[in-house]
Amino acid sequence: MSGGHAHALHIHGHSVVHRLPGHLKVAALFLFVVAVVATPARAVWAFGLYASVLGLVAGLAGVPVRFIARRMLVEVPFLAFALLLPLVGEGPFLEFGGVRLSEAGVLAAWTILAKGSCGVVGSILLAATTEIPNILAGLNRLRAPKAIVAIAGFMVRYLEVISGEMARMRVAMAARGYEPKAFWQVKALATSAGALFIRSYERGERVYMAMVARGYAGSMPTFGDVLTSTADVVRALALPGLAVITAAVALVVSG
């Protein structure tokens, strides 16, 4: 149940990781996460290795541990769920410090904790090292549907404009003493959301006009591709490749 944030996670920098083309980084993240998810949870050593891979990338990119830790908060509801599992799970049970823990529950909790954390840190690293336009360009190159990427571009562009409008409305309401405590009081809030929708929509109409005025005729122009060198491909895919091999070994050994 986490809300989002209007400010993306980007950290400005010029590291090797920052400089890699967006589509390679998106592909690398995907590969890495698939490897992590496919790894049997009992292969604890493999997760140690994944953690070091992530640590290495974070180090190369100069993304501070604190920053990552703070952003990992999005995971908390699921961690809470994970920590409950040993308590509510079914037998067989093991005794631990006088508490009866479900064996399956403990394993499940570990799975969620380990895999979820690897995934979320990987995603944070992508977002931290890649400017949003490069992520969009990357999705384009990875052949995500054109309409999706185009809509995403507009969404990213107007996210702050609209959240700013929303924030101003809420401030205006708070200034007049409005602070909802239960859902039967949210009507005013929601009515302002209605106004926000109309504003967003009408802005959409004006943006469309501005596009037409500059020759838009139904399809977004595509701008020159970033050149991708073999070296980039190797750099981007080396560590995820390692993760895939690790996952394969772990599957054979523990699977």
């Binding site: 949003i132 336009p133 571009g153 802005r203 004006r206 943006v207 006009m209 596009m211 838009y216």
Partner: peptide, 16 residues
Amino acid sequence: DDQLFMPTVRQDVAFG
């Protein structure tokens, strides 16, 4: 804000 709708200034100026 209605006129500048692309993710970067470069792309926006290039749009027309």
